[in-house]
Write a protein that binds this DNA or RNA. Sequence first.
DNA 1: ATGAAAGCGCTAACAA
DNA 2: TTGTTAGCGCTTTCAT
Lengths: 342, 342
Amino acid sequence: MAKDEKKYSIPTIVDVARESGVSYSTVSRVLNGYEFVRTSTREKVLHAAEKLGYVPNRQARSLAGGRSNVIGILVPGLDNGYIGEIVRGIDEDLAKSNYDLMLYTTHRHEGKESRYVTSITNGLTDGLILVVPLIPTAYVEALRQRNFPYVLIDQSDMSDKSSIVDATNWQGAYDGTRYLIQLGHRRIGFITGLLDLASAVDRLEGYKAALSDHDLPLQPEWVVEADFWQAGGYQAAQALLALPQRPTAIFASNDLSAFGAMEAIRDCGLRIPEDLSIIGFDDIPQAAIAYPKLTTIRQPLAQMGRVAAQMLVEHIENPDRPARRVTLATQVVIRDSCQPPR
Amino acid sequence: MAKDEKKYSIPTIVDVARESGVSYSTVSRVLNGYEFVRTSTREKVLHAAEKLGYVPNRQARSLAGGRSNVIGILVPGLDNGYIGEIVRGIDEDLAKSNYDLMLYTTHRHEGKESRYVTSITNGLTDGLILVVPLIPTAYVEALRQRNFPYVLIDQSDMSDKSSIVDATNWQGAYDGTRYLIQLGHRRIGFITGLLDLASAVDRLEGYKAALSDHDLPLQPEWVVEADFWQAGGYQAAQALLALPQRPTAIFASNDLSAFGAMEAIRDCGLRIPEDLSIIGFDDIPQAAIAYPKLTTIRQPLAQMGRVAAQMLVEHIENPDRPARRVTLATQVVIRDSCQPPR
DNA sequence: ATGAAAGCGCTAACAA
DNA sequence: TTGTTAGCGCTTTCAT
């Protein structure tokens, strides 16, 4: 179908060449910003292109060895608020550099991600941003060997062979815990994230370090393992609330599980923050909408996306630049869900 | 760069042909499911492809006149919860049909969307889903003329030349208003959406009709114009609350503005739902997280996405199928933000 | 049932 | 500074 219509309507580089009376490689040069073109020629070509409404054909361009001007982003799914913000940041930055965005979700291809990634990086995209939480060693390795530009978001891979953007997870948890301690809390429960993820572990460690630095004992039963999801937060909070020595504050490893915890707290007939303080992590948009507004540790998600996009474009345009890691600062955002214990 | 690496590592159809000892057009046939290929040949080829880890090159395929197996989705931005759900639905459905998803945001290309759309539909994608709220007449017309497959989401274009997926906006608003009336409310404020949008107008009309059907007067000052955003909802609610005859319930045209209104209500020292009931529209994920949980009119957003994806694939695979409109039912979701007036 | 060859729109040597 | 030409990987006639 599309094939036929193309002929009718969409002008190619050849049409532009004919219109402007030069060879079509000259048109290509002009369009690619090649330096040594006579100004008058350039103008003729540009004018003709404008007149004809020429738009480049990305696949032809990329097939011929040029850039596709598409970057891919591989995410687990869109259903957690967290990713949405990152994608937004990426898109914002890419708009400036005139790259298009191809969105891939991994949940569609359980098991054969590796082949999937090959397909993506096989000319369709110039670079790839991976927001997959688990370290995807297999294909990251493949990408590196092929020297295909990519950036990881929120990964702990310390090999410094990959470019990575992340946030200060440890410090954020430390700061949040300290904030609760300074409010006067002594019994602080902690709901972990999925401990397969480095970010979850780092947050837990930050919490522990803060307790220890303030000479508070670490009660093992105050740490309940969960999975970063709302339902998990609900259950974890229930466990915490059932404790004989109930915590006066709960630190949830992300906002989503904090919401679950808030629900559990209310279902117990307790008020937030009067009876129990709660703090989250991430600062997804919902955090400011929830009631009470959630005090949380802000990860600059959109900015992480923006930085990742910038780094990726750098890599694409300068393949030899070495990998680097950028760690953005988290920040305690004080809202209404915490107060001193009674 | 990518160019060089390709040679090293990524097998093409030619490699598969060599490996299996047939011509590469035969390989192409097998890969495209062409019927008349000897079974033994097919197996040889498939086996070789598998062994080599062959993945098709989408641009080459599409350049040569085949399908790209990519569908594009054009959205205003990712920052409203609403779109995210739709995209999720689309992605879910597309996973089944093995199409990839290209995400385009319009805010990047103010003014020259038309050319942008040309670029997208110029072979890069096999079809396009448009979630742009304002009717994009210019390029929709262009798409139709080129017979390029597309589906609109949430558009009112009644020409029945375009395939459209939407929801029962009028009915939803009617039902919601009736629900409030049945709770006993007589003074019901209404916060509109951006009235340039048909969905906003439909919702307003549904509200009016419900009042009228129940012999309630329509007080002009109870209808405050807003824009579907949280800040707008806040202001609109303020206006409503300042009225001498304050409404006992507020219908917000979408959840986001309902959240804004809730904030304003609380800032006035009023409680929800004890002092004032509020109902939203959309049922974005935040609605169930907010406190009190928001009673709202559910639009099946993810399902709208799924249906749109299905329709689009149908159109791609059968270009002659006539356009059609699918309107999905809305539904009152009763949570905790409404109660009878005191 | 299979092979040979043309060509999709473009970039990038190589000439001129 | 510009034109000529050879592919990029694939689909699709047209032969065989």
